[in-house]
């Protein structure tokens, strides 16, 4: 099967049971996306699939022929610098997923997508909005209060 990963075409011969996450980590050597639960519960494996954030552990790779995948290795976004400035991580294991998720989330926001905490009218990127929209990405170190201002400031740039 063929897949475009971080702009490069990749040809892969995969077991039909191989997830996108395992294809990236075990077959392409792209270990930036992390395996935290393998069940779509923690968000550490988040990548961008055709521009949208997905849990790569929940998708079988063979269903994606022709798709474009962006992993943390292919991300170049202001949120990364802001994570450094705000200390938006400790162990770093959830970090690639948090950053990919933030990039995808900001795009969803710019398209006017509402969230569970959005009132009537267009949403503004308040801290409660960021927290709600980022809640699919767990962080056991508890770096949440540092990630939220990092994402907010990255969006303001």
């Amino acid at each position: 099967m063929d897949l475009v990963v971080n702009g490069a075409e990749q040809s892969l011969d995969l077991d039909p049971r191989t997830t996108l996450l395992d294809a990236l980590r075990e077959h392409l050597g792209l270990t930036g996306a992390k395996k935290g639960c393998d069940h779509g519960q923690c968000g550490a494996c988040t990548v961008l699939l055709d521009g949208r954030r997905v849990n790569s552990c929940l998708i079988l790779a063979i269903t994606l022929s022709g798709s474009e995948v962006t992993t943390i290795e292919g991300v170049d976004h202001p949120v990364q610098q802001k994570f450094l400035e705000h200390d938006g991580f400790q162990c770093g294991y959830c970090t690639p997923g948090q950053i990919c998720s933030a990039v995808g989330m900001l795009d969803e926001f710019s398209q006017g997508w509402p969230s569970a905490v959005t009132g009537s009218g267009p949403p503004d990127l308040s801290d409660p909005e960021i927290r709600e929209r980022m809640s699919g990405n767990l962080c056991r170190c508890g770096a949440y209060p540092n990630m939220v201002p990092a994402i907010r400031e990255a969006a303001e740039r």
Binding site: T31, L84, F89, G92, Y93, P96, I99
Partner: peptide
Amino acid sequence: IERIEGPDKVRGAARYAAEYQ
């Protein structure tokens, strides 16, 4: 001071135990 390994962690370049070739 910012974390020394921070740039690796935000780029996905920091290697963990199951990630060595």
